[in-house]
């Protein structure tokens, strides 16, 4: 591959990292445009949606290159957004040699996961606090924390055996509701709704929905529609999972 094509490939790597870490579409497009400009491309056309990136650049001597990427999995990771952002700033001030750019990108991609307690702690805090926040008692909070551990375990297994996200959401919601029912039947939880809502804050694509609405208003209509559609599907999957359990065991929920 030619040097310029390699450079474009590396720039797309940076864009892909941003997009998979949950950055806004507008930021991804802007970063790619700026980096391409810094590496001497005179014209850049970039279209990014949440599922794919298409970039065409024109070099100073008139050569034109096009590359695309398919984006499958996204997981919010603010550290990576920040790191790519910093890298892009560095590049715009002073374009790094290609090898160094690749090295930096690889560094960001292979960032350590951090403490293994981070995720369970986050689950406990979110489920417990929001169960109380939405009107539950402190006992509901504790019940919600127990249920969040079910959610965490199911999520771990689901990711390991590569379940489809929607299927995983249905199963997670169903098992979580079952756990919530058990805590209520056992006498620990009092308000079933609050325990479930506390845990739903972990599953619900609320942030995705707000982001997609924002995308639509700033003109990224396709990304916005895709995001909203995905969020809606997930919301329905959650409700289906809950309904599955509540209708059978919870007296119509």
């Amino acid at each position: 591959m030619q040097q310029k094509e390699q450079t474009l490939f590396a720039i797309l790597d940076a864009g892909e990292l941003l997009l998979t870490a949950g950055a806004e579409v507008a930021r991804v497009e802007d970063t790619i445009r700026r980096m391409a400009h810094a590496y001497g491309f005179v014209r850049t056309d970039v279209l990014t949606i949440t599922a794919s990136m298409i970039v065409t650049v024109q070099a100073a001597n008139g050569d034109v290159f096009t590359q695309t990427r398919r984006i499958l999995r996204r997981e919010t990771d603010m550290r990576r957004i920040e790191a790519v952002n910093a890298l892009s700033r560095t590049v715009c001030r002073n374009p790094l040699p290609l090898d160094e750019l690749r090295g930096r990108i690889e560094e960001i991609r292979s960032m350590p996961e951090g403490s293994k307690w981070r995720l369970p702690a986050a689950y406990l805090l979110i489920a417990g606090s929001f169960a109380v926040f939405f009107g539950g008692s402190w006992r509901d909070g504790i019940a919600a924390m127990l249920c969040s551990m079910v959610l965490y375990a199911v999520g771990r297994v689901g990711v390991r055996i590569r379940l489809q996200p929607i299927v995983l959401t249905v199963i997670s919601a169903a098992l979580m509701c079952l756990a919530a029912l058990i805590t209520v039947k056992a006498g620990l939880g009092q308000g079933l709704d609050y325990i479930i809502i506390g845990n739903i804050m972990l599953l619900i694509p609320g942030i995705a929905l707000v982001t997609s609405l924002r995308d639509m208003i700033v003109g990224d209509t396709i990304s916005g529609l895709l995001g909203a559609c995905e969020a809606l599907l997930r919301a329905i999957a959650i409700a289906a999972g809950c309904a599955l359990v509540l209708m059978q065991l919870g007296g119509a929920g």
Binding site: E24, I197, G206, T211, A235, C242, A252
Partner: peptide, 26 residues
């Protein structure tokens, strides 16, 4: 975005979304 998104979390209408979808299924 790295600060704004987590800060807005208390506003996410999780309860309403839950009741909405539950009503739809029922």
């Amino acid at each position: 975005i790295t600060l704004l998104v987590p800060m807005l979390v208390p506003l996410i209408p999780g309860g309403d979304l839950y009741y909405t979808t539950l009503a739809l299924v029922q």
